[in-house]
């Protein structure tokens, strides 16, 4: 399923996907519609433009998680709106790609997202690293079980991703298997998403919205 408000883009991406053997079950240019359609069309992967005219990418991701849990989301954005990208990742998107990425890179990202892997750009790795540092520097809230922390290995891997090394190069440099590198990256994201959910729940309880 392809969600992008730019008709030319929607068209182009769908064509590429179809040519590569994927079944594009739906396309739309609006976030609310995307959430509704996804509930019925039940796509495996949603290719989502972060900037939609009606609701934010984060809201779309929350909506998708509610109506169609387990869907994998690959975000696309034309520019690195950094906070938006970070929020989307924390909300549950597992892949991120700049629109300036090439066709082959895009198809590879879709394939990996569908397989359940995380797709990071160097930019996203930098954002996630920064987010962990920010959380570590922040004073812990009362009753908090502590901000999520990266292991030394995870930090190392994330830094190398941010410096533009491919998983294969990282595996070579750290003498790890490709799968292990992938797992480390996935863990960094998983912890952040879990923390985000805990935060949201606590916020809801504090505000008395948990009925």
């Amino acid at each position: 399923m392809v969600v992008d408000d730019h008709p030319m883009w929607r068209e182009g991406v769908s064509r590429d996907l179809t040519a590569a053997g994927y079944d594009v079950v739906a396309t739309t240019g609006e976030g609310r519609q995307a959430v509704r359609i996804a509930a019925a069309a039940r796509p495996d992967v949603v290719v989502l433009d972060l900037q939609l005219p009606d609701i934010s990418g984060v809201e779309v991701i929350h909506g998708l998680a509610e109506t169609h849990p387990g869907v994998r989301i690959l975000m696309l954005s034309a520019s690195g709106e950094q906070q938006d990208v970070l929020d989307a990742v924390k909300a549950g998107a597992t892949g991120y790609l700049l629109k300036s990425a090439g066709q082959a890179e895009f198809l590879d990202a879709v394939r990996r997202t569908a397989a359940g892997d995380t797709v990071f750009t160097p930019g996203l790795a930098g954002l996630v690293l920064g987010e962990y540092r920010r959380l570590a520097a922040e004073p812990a809230a009362p009753g908090d079980d502590g901000a999520p922390r990266l292991t030394e290995r995870e930090t190392e891997v994330l830094r190398l991703v941010a410096k533009g090394l491919s998983y294969r190069q990282i595996a070579e440099r750290l003498v790890l298997s490709h799968r292990t590198v992938q797992n480390h990256v996935q863990n960094t994201l998983g912890k952040l998403q879990l923390h985000n959910r805990v935060e949201l729940t606590r916020y809801a309880i504090e505000q008395g919205l948990d009925d």
């Binding site: 408000d5 730019h6 030319m8 883009w9 182009g12 900037q51 034309a78 520019s79 629109k99 300036s100 090439g102 066709q103 895009f106």
Partner: peptide, 18 residues
């Protein structure tokens, strides 16, 4: 600019790459 020019430019790049 983001909604118009950037999108088209990246699309041109993408389609013409090959």
């Amino acid at each position: 600019i983001h909604d118009s020019v950037l999108q088209v430019l990246s699309l041109v790049k993408r389609r013409g790459e090959a």
